[in-house]
Design a protein around this nucleic acid. Structure first.
Lengths: 195, 195
DNA sequence: ATTATGTTAGCGAGTGTTCACTTACTTGAG
DNA sequence: CTCAAGTAAGTGAACACTCGCTAACATAAT
């Protein structure tokens, strides 16, 4: 978070914790202030509105996810990049478990047009980046070409989202990194070209 | 909906429409009563509480989804059953587009334990039924066995959820049945045993 | 046929509570 | 002395829900 003060950072991360543990309905200025240990009015010394705090939440997430996106360009082999992209997601979510609940439920931000647009942009961006690498993988003969790159990206993203969602709903009952690694291997096995 | 009166049915379907179009935050007793054209107080002649109305929403959905589940046992060939199961989902969502937004965002019901439990049970039920058929498909040599049935079900459900979510977020910008049919074919192509 | 009794489904006008946010004032470090 | 960062005590609006009342209709005894 670029220009955020220590206090602003604290407000945003506390907000994330509340959303994760109690749902967005319980992210109230009262609860947020209480969780930090300051008055409601003090919140407004650091943010103009609750909406601004929620935008902070999204920005925080965006920065957190950057490393995963970077993995798409780290190696020469597309398949390796895809694999690392997926695994990095699981690593990030494991290290920031509160985020899973916050992000994979877009309806959290429903009706706040600014937040929805912001989230949609992020989604489209990373989807596009992913599909580019999938196309590379197909061109280089690593992935099968009888399935469209669009549908391959749907399978990959859908699978990731679903296992993270399962993990989140189950209260982190399994090891996301291990289960995710196997899932990732299986997806690639299903999609690679067999000679 | 079993024992529901005409008015109760109307209240529930109107509630679904509001959630779909304006989000759950705007499902207020005021808005709901207004949309129907009766007073708020009149709502309470037909339901004891707002929670009861939301339970009605879930029951409505459950009944609507029954046909998809039935498809899992309609033919002898597991692969055909799986295909019809998936296609039936797309058919149902196309015919009841408001549901997509309501259901695939579990966070809609976050913090209402009764609703969450109800939704989780439905999810687990259909996941289990699906995985059973996947195992059959593997036993009969229709599906590859180098990928666990658990991960196959993750890929299938994840892909379905994701394309429905895309369709919903895009404002039904594409034909879900057609796009979904191709996605379904591709998934099965990726998972079937090749000789 | 009339009348008494009960039920259903509606209404306007509230209730107390909680929400995001504001105002006016205080405190303490530089 | 200034001023950023805090506070207590509000604000109006929105929330789910309740109140007392009524018109319309059904049932059945007189």
């Amino acid at each position: 978070m670029k220009n955020f003060s220590e206090r602003q950072r604290q407000i945003v991360t506390t907000a994330i914790g509340i959303i994760a543990k109690q749902g967005i309905q319980n992210l109230t200025t009262k609860n947020l202030a209480q969780a930090i240990g300051i008055s409601e009015a003090a919140l407004y010394r650091h943010f103009d509105s609750k909406l601004e705090i929620m935008q902070g939440v999204l920005e925080y997430f965006k920065i957190l996810m950057q490393p995963a996106l970077a993995k798409l360009k780290s190696h020469a082999k597309p398949t390796e990049n895809l694999e690392e992209f997926v695994l990095e997601h699981f690593r990030i979510f494991t290290a920031n478990s509160s985020f899973a609940r916050v992000i994979f439920s877009e309806s959290n931000f429903q009706n706040e047009e600014i937040l929805m647009n912001s989230l949609n942009k992020m989604m489209i961006n990373s989807r596009q980046a992913l599909e580019d690498v999938i196309i590379q993988a197909q061109r280089k003969g690593e992935f099968r070409t009888d399935i469209s790159s669009c549908n391959i990206s749907r399978m990959m993203i859908g699978s990731i989202r679903f296992i993270v969602s399962q993990w989140s709903v189950s209260g982190m009952a399994f090891n996301l990194e291990n289960e995710g690694r196997q899932l990732c291997k299986d997806i690639i096995a299903a999609l690679k070209l067999r000679q």
